[in-house]
């Protein structure tokens, strides 16, 4: 029982950032911009969120500080994603290369900058555990579910779930969301009906930057006590979740559950008796999510449900 509770808690730590970041990726890709830069957005904006948190730790009390830090991460995420948006949308550059450029830039810049301001070390400690909610009032007392989901939890977990619900409603139910998807499927048709494709794509990439930025901080917060300029490839994992989830919000949720579960197994399998007894190397568990993605992709890619115009620059004059 205690093992199960422990695993579920761990699962939530992995699940939420993955879900939020993949949702960000979904915004960008449904509008037609391939966002491979999720990883660097996470790294970059998590750093500023952490800096903000450390700077205002005595000024802003408790959970409000966490919310403010999340907002700072979101804003820096938006600013950083504008770099991608500008080259991919306005300058019609190759989106993969522009994103790989950002992926090269961000971790190096973060190491450079944090060593500069943090007396030579890129590990920035932050008071993460002070945000832990020991037990949510009322809900924490529910017998089984309480200890799993409402004890020793972080506010980010609930914020992440709310963000996902709002995000999927925006994509699936609102005028903006549907127009955005039209820009990703057939931008020329969307433009012919008066949708400003450039503007829509810019907004979509900015939303994706905000979500990935918050995802970065959400990842760092529960699993470690210091930020070390990396999110352990979570941005790429989020991309895999997005593809595995076929760019739709409900499958995306399932894909995120699956990935977080296998990620949890990879880091906690030694405490699960029957898995620890199996003669499999830890490399197997660690690479398990990636291998399963490949197999799943092999079966689902033949008739890809990817947005048709994803990765292609929009050219008003083209038909």
């Amino acid at each position: 029982m205690t093992v199960l509770v422990f695993i579920v808690r761990y699962f939530m730590y992995f699940f939420i950032p993955l879900l939020v970041t993949a949702l960000g990726g979904m915004f960008s890709e449904r509008s037609g911009v391939l966002n491979m830069a999720l990883d660097s957005i996470m790294v970059f904006s998590a750093m500023w969120g952490i800096f903000f948190m450390n700077a205002f730790v005595d000024v802003i009390p408790g959970q409000l500080l966490l919310i403010c830090s999340l907002l700072v991460s979101a804003v820096t995420g938006i600013l950083f994603s504008l770099l991608l948006a500008y080259s991919a949308i306005s300058l019609k550059a190759n989106q993969t290369i522009a994103a790989m450029a950002l992926n090269t830039f961000a971790p190096a810049f973060c190491v450079f900058y944090s060593r500069l301001v943090n007396s030579g070390s890129e590990h920035i400690a932050f008071p993460g555990s002070s945000f832990r909610i020991e037990s949510v009032p009322l809900l924490g007392k529910i017998p089984v579910i309480g200890p799993m989901f409402f004890q020793q939890a972080y506010l980010t977990t609930y914020i992440g779930i709310v963000l996902f619900i709002i995000g999927s409603i925006i994509i699936n139910k609102t005028k903006f969301g549907l127009r955005m998807c039209a820009c990703g499927e057939n931008p020329q048709a969307a433009a012919s009906l008066g949708v400003d494709v450039y503007k829509t794509r810019y907004i979509a990439v900015m939303i994706s930057g905000a979500l990935a930025g918050m995802g970065g901080l959400m990842y760092i917060l529960p699993v470690s006590a210091s930020y070390s300029c990396t999110v352990a490839g979570y941005g790429y994992l989020a991309l895999a979740v997005l593809i595995f989830g076929r760019w739709r919000s409900r499958p995306l949720l399932l894909a995120a559950v699956f990935f977080a579960l296998s990620k949890t197994l990879a880091s906690a399998y030694t405490s699960i008796p029957f898995l620890a007894a199996l003669p499999l190397p830890d490399a197997f568990y660690k690479s398990f999510p990636f291998m399963v993605t490949l197999i799943a992709l092999a079966f689902t890619s033949k008739h890809s449900s990817a947005p048709k115009a994803s990765g292609q620059p929009f050219d008003q004059g083209k038909r």
């Binding site: 080259s87 550059a93 522009a98 450029a101 090269t104 190096a108 190491v111 500069l116």
Partner: peptide, 24 residues
């Protein structure tokens, strides 16, 4: 007193620019 990571920063910026300079 500078970290050698600045080289990767430059690399990133160079790729970023080279992704669209040719188009320009």
């Amino acid at each position: 007193g500078f970290q050698k990571e600045i080289v990767s920063v430059i690399t990133g910026v160079i790729i970023y620019f080279s992704s669209f300079v040719l188009l320009l």
